[in-house]
Simulated scan of single mutants.
Amino acid sequence: MGVTGAGKTTVGHALAEALGADYADADAFHSEGNVAKMSAGEPLDDSDREPWLGAVGDWLAARGPAGGVVSCSALKRSYRDILRERDPGVWFLHLAGPADVAAARVGEREGHFMPVSLVTAQYAALEPLAGDEPGLTVEFVLPPGRIVERALSALDAPQAETTKEVV
Rank of each mutant, 00 (worst) to 15 (best):
M1P: 15
G2N: 08
G2V: 02
T4R: 11
T4E: 01
A6E: 03
G7M: 01
G7Q: 03
G7F: 02
K8D: 05
K8L: 11
V11R: 04
G12Q: 02
H13E: 14
A14C: 07
A14M: 14
A14D: 10
L15N: 09
A16Y: 06
E17A: 14
A18L: 10
G20S: 00
D25Q: 09
D25T: 06
D25L: 06
D25W: 04
A26P: 11
D27F: 01
D27V: 01
A28N: 13
H30C: 00
H30Q: 06
H30D: 00
H30G: 00
S31C: 06
E32L: 09
G33A: 15
A36G: 07
K37T: 05
K37R: 13
M38E: 01
M38Q: 04
S39D: 00
A40M: 05
E42Q: 15
E42V: 15
P43G: 04
L44C: 04
L44W: 06
D45M: 09
D46L: 05
S47I: 02
R49D: 03
R49A: 04
E50M: 11
W52P: 12
L53T: 00
L53R: 04
G54W: 05
A55H: 11
V56Y: 02
G57C: 03
D58L: 08
D58K: 13
W59T: 07
W59C: 01
L60M: 13
A62M: 11
A62E: 14
A62G: 15
R63C: 10
G64A: 11
A66T: 11
G67C: 08
S71K: 03
C72F: 09
C72A: 07
C72D: 09
S73E: 13
S73Y: 05
A74Y: 13
K76D: 03
K76E: 04
R80I: 07
R80L: 06
D81E: 14
L83M: 11
E85W: 01
R86F: 11
R86M: 13
R86Y: 12
D87Y: 00
P88K: 08
G89S: 13
W91I: 12
L93M: 06
L93A: 05
G97W: 12
G97Q: 10
A99R: 11
A99T: 01
D100G: 03
A102C: 14
A102W: 07
A102S: 13
A102D: 04
A104W: 02
R105K: 11
E108N: 13
R109T: 12
H112S: 09
F113D: 09
M114I: 06
M114Q: 02
V116T: 14
S117T: 14
L118A: 03
V119G: 06
A121N: 13
A124C: 09
A124F: 09
L126F: 06
L126M: 08
E127W: 04
G131M: 04
P134R: 12
G135D: 01
L136M: 13
T137G: 02
V138Q: 09
V138L: 05
F140A: 01
V141P: 00
V141Y: 00
L142H: 12
P143M: 06
P143V: 08
P143F: 01
R146L: 13
I147V: 15
I147Q: 07
I147W: 04
E149F: 08
R150F: 00
A151S: 14
A154L: 02
A154E: 03
A154V: 03
L155I: 09
D156I: 00
A157N: 08
A157S: 12
Q159R: 12
A160S: 15
A160C: 15
T162V: 13
T163E: 09
T163I: 04
E165F: 14
V166M: 01
